[in-house]
Design a protein around this nucleic acid. Structure first.
Lengths: 403, 403
DNA sequence: CCGGTTTAGTTTGCCGGATGAATTTATCCC
DNA sequence: GGGATAAATTCATCCGGCAAACTAAACCGG
């Protein structure tokens, strides 16, 4: 037998890696901090020597990833600390999204500030993939040019799509609600000049929205996220990290079957079939062309059919989320998208089903909350995902920049 | 605001840690290898310098975790390699299990050889927890004494229970099929003299069985494991590692609801209610006191009711596993316990439901296979879990030994 | 039998990077 | 203005991985 070759060189510890890793620790310590920490605080909180942190921080400042704030005039004795904060407008992550009703871009820097944003509302159901991607490119190109012109280094671009995306090889497998199937999104976008230099990573809309949600909540929360747009997507977040699965296909809560014996096809009992936007509108007796607003209006008006439609959907949602909790042991459920808007009408039923069905509920009650990541969270999540390449290994990223 | 204190000192890289980590890399490289590797092969496969590996291996040999085999007489030119293998009988992990029909112990060394084993068959449904734990202690004590007497260092003890166990604090929360609830298992066992020195870790039976299964398959597989005993347990394995969840409560596939509208309680549609051993026996028209063998006999005899009972159960099982696959993106399903015995009767239906319902099936077909970890896999998994403390950080474990 | 070749393992000097102690800097307080 | 106090930097040290040189143990061809 021949030598099997390097198997997993990432696990071994080299000394060069040590430096790189600690550079990342320091940067994340500064970016994730609630209040700008000083070098000394950073050293204490990370367990490194002050001298070490000083060296790392110098490196980060020189790379324009971190900046020093004005010394705080505290009332204590001793030399005042120099607070450290993420640099503003020096590195930008670009998040893009194509969804059923809109497409757009959002660029965010390390400080979390939005550097640029454009959204176009339009019904893209069944639209030609090539055409839509061209439109997106036309929207994104000036943003990227603007960033570069202002001296912002682009960390990367990430595109959110409402479908199944292979995180390893890139192509979109299927986006049912757009009517797309097996589209090589990366190649199509990379063909455009401004985007060619920053070939996009593509990811599922719900996973990226969940990332934005985790970021908005700070403190490495764990939760199951449900993103009801036209379809129902979802994601699992553990300790603040998206749980991607092997291919990035995890968290597909819309395809959870909660009523296996409903129709001839077991998929007739899936969450999306029972609680998708179309299903709810139909059950409420509203035309399929209606929007969610119509359903909300009907609910506010006290419409019985609307109430029962939402109640049925909430029951299915609660059961599906209980299944998720039983499988991955998450303690919190976050409702986003459609279900965020319907939050007040579904919360109690979802919470009741979780209490009833999740086996560990008596010892660790589940919490249900509403998404708080703002509008178009997947765009934010995409920008954050782009920035995460800088945050996870700043040294490596800096090497790619100079090269 | 005061200093927040050390937050996550595990992420930072110190130089001492580097050594410790590489010691673990080397040890795992030797233990997990298909064929005993030489120092040079190890260096090549892990990406370390030969000199470094030599030093690490010397350390491991001195600690009696690794041994040198006789040089292989290969037909090639050059100095013959010295193959390295895990030491035999120098360190033992002790796995224990209490289940509905039996209780037992199994001790395994780093080489994977069974050093000792005792199983007592008995119906423990509703048995008093204290009494059963005393019986287990009486079974385990001579095993541990025997190991110590033979110079085997006990790496730890792990108890498998068919219920919900808090992996952080230890106590058993609930074991429905034993009729136990909120039992402080660790305290009860630690009270015994021989076990006092090795306070057990407690874990879910299915999770440990899945660990044994992952070990038996080698090569870091990813799969969902189903352990049908009297209840239905399960576990998620990713890259050869058990996915524990926050509390160790993940993989509870038995509580997945696949038929939410079946009865007044949504839990009436859970997998365990539809495909548990009792449910299958009842549906097959067999007395509830019957064993699985009776069902298998009826199937072999061509009994229609038995066939339809198993078919119904298989459908529920397939749907539940499809739900798991959609949520955590695993590509393989392993049937153990009851479902391993029923494998031939359920395989096709389970595979069909997975193909139909798992959204990524068209691009990454799911495989269904039968467990191959042998009898009482949870005992093996417990022993392996105990040994894993040595494997993950041998340096740290050696420090605890000398201290 | 002997020197050349090949591969395994060890020795050695080197280097990067973390570390702790000492030093400098900058503030508050009396 | 002179301690007291805390932040940041400097410096000598140490640890551990690394590359290259070296030794060991086999095969081979004459």
């Amino acid at each position: 037998m021949p030598t099997p070759g390097p198997r997993d060189p990432s696990r071994v510890a080299r000394q060069a890696q040590m430096r790189d890793q600690n550079l990342g620790v320091a940067l994340r310590g500064i970016v994730d901090a609630v209040q700008p920490p000083s070098r000394a605080q950073l050293a204490a909180s990370e367990g490194l020597a002050r001298a070490t942190v000083s060296g790392l921080v110098d490196h980060l400042i020189e790379a324009r990833l971190v900046r020093e704030l004005d010394p705080t005039q505290t009332q204590r004795a001793g030399r005042p600390a120099v607070p450290l904060a993420p640099a503003q407008g020096t590195v930008g992550g670009v998040g893009m999204e194509i969804n059923v009703d809109y497409l757009g871009v959002r660029a965010i820097d390390l400080a979390g500030d939005v550097l640029a944003e454009h959204v176009e509302l339009d019904d893209l159901r069944g639209a030609d993939a090539g055409t839509v991607l061209d439109r997106l490119a036309a929207l994104v190109a000036p943003v990227i040019d603007g960033l570069c012109g202002r001296g912002v280094r682009v960390a990367g671009t990430v595109l959110a799509l409402p479908g199944l995306v292979d995180r390893v090889t890139g192509p979109l497998r299927v986006a049912p609600n757009l009517g797309w199937r097996d589209v090589d999104v990366v190649a199509a976008l990379s063909a455009h000049p401004a985007l060619g230099a920053f070939p996009p990573r593509v990811a599922n809309e719900a996973n990226l929205a969940a990332r934005a949600e985790a970021h908005a909540r700070r403190g490495s929360p764990s939760f199951a996220y449900v993103s009801g747009e036209v379809g129902i997507g979802g994601a699992i977040v553990l300790d603040g990290e998206i749980f991607p699965g092997r291919h990035g296909w995890s968290g597909e809560v819309g395809h959870i079957v909660v009523d296996a014996f409903r129709g001839p096809h077991a998929s007739d009992g899936s969450l999306e079939a029972l609680a998708g936007q179309d299903a709810m509108l139909r059950a409420a007796g509203l035309p399929s062309t209606a929007r969610l607003d119509a359903l909300l209006d009907a609910l506010d008006a006290g419409d019985e059919r609307a109430a029962s439609a939402v109640a049925q959907a909430a029951r299915a949602l609660g059961v599906a989320l209980a299944n998720v909790a039983n499988v991955v042991d998450v303690g919190e459920v976050v409702l986003g998208g459609t279900f965020g808007q319907l939050y007040d009408h579904v919360h109690d039923e979802v919470a009741a089903r979780l209490d009833e069905l999740v086996i560990f509920a008596p010892w660790s009650p589940l919490e249900v909350s509403r998404a708080c990541a703002g509008q178009y969270p997947a765009m934010t999540g995409g920008a954050l995902a782009a920035l995460s390449t800088v945050l996870t290994d700043p040294a490596e990223w800096l090497r790619t920049q100079t090269a």
